[in-house]
């Protein structure tokens, strides 16, 4: 096709407009690549300074965060972020997959459509609203537990986990639902014909066949959880100490907006450093996700 046009019009005779548009579209296409390159360069450049100054190990493994005396150890924050993300995903994954099973396989079409409206709404609620609701509804719920454990009342790691579970559920549900729906009908028909019950078929055939999609949903949810800042900041109490379930914690993401306004000099650079650590985590997750998608795509063919 293209060959024919080029024979007729001749490549050299391409009008100026065509060549200009070709160039403009190329620039638009490259915009995302340029953005990623610039982001990487500036994240590394701005965050690298403090890490070079205090040393990688002292920055990453230091237990004390005290900007006043220029001590910048972010181990408690890294652990708090990882712990909150891990727990949130561990809770949200089974719940999300079971709800996706309900939507894709068990519920009548109209009910599923109605539920999806709800899930879309949940996905669209701004994170500050989750933070507000968390601070007023979830944090007080934990007061009794804290009292029983003899701890002061306030924000906690548990509150951050609960709010993250609610926030990543829509992602896990919708990605898993799509994965469950794309499993070929023949698989299920064969299982049902061989005498398995509806649930046996779903749990032994459909879910294993949709595994790569479900894992992709889990990784996407992990990325969302580890990058969430405002909501967890409003419920987690923000003390940069080693994480415990019922005590206040500070997550990597939360440290940045909390201290941003009154930080300067070395302190501000330490916040850039935290940004760089987060950036590395997110890049690892992105690359992982890409590998899973590639593998999943190859499997389907």
């Amino acid at each position: 096709m293209t060959k024919k046009t080029s024979v007729l019009s001749g490549k050299s005779a391409k009008p100026l407009v065509e060549r200009a548009m070709n160039l403009i579209f190329l620039i638009c296409g490259l915009a995302s690549v340029i953005s990623v390159v610039f982001m990487t360069v500036y994240m590394v450049a701005s965050g690298g300074a403090i890490i070079a100054e205090t040393g990688v190990l002292r920055f990453l493994l230091g237990r004390i965060w005290n900007p006043g005396s220029s001590e910048f150890g972010i181990l408690p924050m890294i652990l708090a972020s990882l712990l909150a993300t891990l727990c949130a995903v561990l809770v949200a994954l089974p719940v999300g997959v079971l709800i996706a099973v309900f939507l894709a396989k068990l519920s009548p079409g109209k009910l599923a459509a109605g539920m999806r409206t709800f899930i879309d709404l949940l996905a669209g609620i701004p994170s500050v609203i989750y933070g507000l609701l968390g601070a007023l509804l979830i944090v007080p719920m934990i007061f009794r537990l804290q009292k029983a454990a003899g701890l002061p009342n306030g924000g906690s790691l548990l509150a951050a986990i609960l709010i993250l579970v609610i926030m990543i559920l829509p992602t896990i549900i919708s990605v898993s639902e799509t994965a469950l729906r794309t499993v070929p009908k023949q698989y299920e028909e064969a299982a049902l014909a061989l005498g398995s019950t509806r649930l046996q078929c779903i749990f032994k055939v459909t879910i294993p066949a949709a595994k790569s999609g479900i894992v992709a949903g889990m990784v996407l949810g992990t990325g969302r959880a580890i990058g969430e800042a405002m909501a967890v900041m409003m419920v987690s109490g923000n003390a940069a100490i080693m994480p415990e379930l019922l005590r206040p914690v500070r997550l990597l993401t939360a440290a940045i907006p909390i201290e941003w306004a009154y930080s300067s000099g070395l302190h501000r650079q330490a916040l850039y450093g935290i940004g760089l650590v987060l950036f590395v985590f997110i890049m690892i997750i992105n690359i992982l996700l890409r590998q899973i998608m590639k593998k999943g795509g190859a499997h389907d063919e």
Binding site: G29, M39, L220, I256, P257, Y272, M283
Partner: peptide, 30 residues
């Protein structure tokens, strides 16, 4: 419609996916 170079297409796709996965607080710092 235009891109023919597979590597370039791959790079643009990857960049776009990466941007979609970066959390907003990092956009703030950048």
């Amino acid at each position: 419609e235009y891109a023919k170079n597979k590597k370039l297409v791959g790079a643009i796709q990857f960049a776009s996916e990466t941007l979609a996965g970066i959390p907003s607080i990092l956009y703030g710092i950048f």
